[in-house]
Amino acid sequence: MLLEMFSYSFITRAVVVGSLVSLCASLLGVSLVLKRYSMIGDGLSHVSFGAMSVAAAMNVAPLALSVPVVLAAAFLLLRLSESSRIRGDAAIAVISSSALAVGVIVTSLTTGLNTDVCNFMFGSVLAMTKSDVLLSVVLSVIVIAVFVVFYNKIFAVTFDESFSRATGVRAGLYNTVIALLTAVTIVLGMRIMGALLISSLVIFPALSAMRVCRRFKTVVLLSAGLSLGCFLLGMAASYAFETPVGASVVVADLFVFALFSLIGGGKR
């Protein structure tokens, strides 16, 4: 069955991009979950939805427009949550629902709420064109490389931001790096996973890994492995039972999380 699955080139493309995005999301997810920024993925995916709707209406390549827009939104969200006037969670809610609203209005005024919109919301295995794949591969390799190079800094800043700042680590810079990498990952993954489901790719693997691992390094590695495994499992299940890819991957993640919670609970 697996061989048959890969005989469809659109599935091969989705598997390549999805695997890479899963890896990126899970690496960044560990830091985001620990910093209490879990919802940043959700917020950014809604912004991405808005940007893609506008791109579709304007007949522009969706990735070309939404990557810069979401990068800007990530930057803005970070600044907002650092200033104490609006709390981080409120800032995310405000930006994400506004972007969603703009996206819905633009589509309903132009093309109408058609299958495109549905695909943006819940993801589609058909989403990736050849040029999308190339761009996605390049960007995800950059995300993974930057994460590996900055790994120790990211650990230090995530564990204790004020200590890091006091010793001269440029914590603001690394926070920005994390936010920008997250933005790129969300935009890339959203096409397959859907705007409503992509944030689970960021949160679940990190949460599952934290149930059983006790060190940052092992949490990061296990989370990457789980994320990749769950994506492939969800993909296969989606092919076998003809269910939507995004939802299948999330359910696979949920099962793994439940399983690891049981294991972790037993260990304590």
């Binding site: 620990l34 910093k35 209490r36 650990f155 995530t158 564990f159 204790d160 934290m210 691992c213 006790r214 060190r215 940052f216 390094k217 092992t218 949490v219």
Partner: peptide
Amino acid sequence: VQRDFPAGVFEV
């Protein structure tokens, strides 16, 4: 954040 942070002593 540190209360449930998975970090090894040496890492910290």
